[in-house]
Design a protein around this nucleic acid. Structure first.
Length: 103
DNA sequence: GATGTGACGAAAG
DNA sequence: TCTTTCGCCACAT
């Protein structure tokens, strides 16, 4: 299984109503220190993708997408019950598998 | 090769 | 809690 497949699998396993950071999802995909790589892949995702890309946010609990796209992502998250306070998500409440065992 | 740029992250102050 | 700084890596110029 290539690294991209592992990435898609990891993202698909983030439950509704939870979020995961770029760095954490990279680790789950077996590629630590590759948060930027995750962002690059997601930026090229087809618009009709069923992947829950909106559940991936940065380590500060903030949405990395600018402008209209960012608003859309936030809307998707709020739709799942995730609340924002000053443009920020409480990772302790909504974060999922942020520090998984290295194995 | 050098440089700049991203849906990034962590540490320092 | 901010902002800065640096590490990181694929890609375009």
């Amino acid at each position: 299984m290539g690294p991209e497949s592992a990435l898609y699998l990891a993202i698909s396993q983030v439950p509704s109503g939870r979020v995961c950071t770029y760095g954490a999802i990279a680790r789950l995909a077996g590629l630590p220190n590759r948060a930027r790589w995750v962002g690059r892949i997601l930026s090229r995702l087809p618009q009709d993708s069923t992947l829950p890309w909106h559940r991936i946010i940065n380590s500060q609990g903030r949405i990395s997408l600018p402008g209209e796209r960012g608003s859309f992502q936030r809307q998707r998250l709020e739709q799942e019950g995730i609340t924002f306070r000053n443009d920020r998500v409480n990772l302790r409440q909504f974060g999922w598998n942020l520090h998984p065992p290295s194995n």
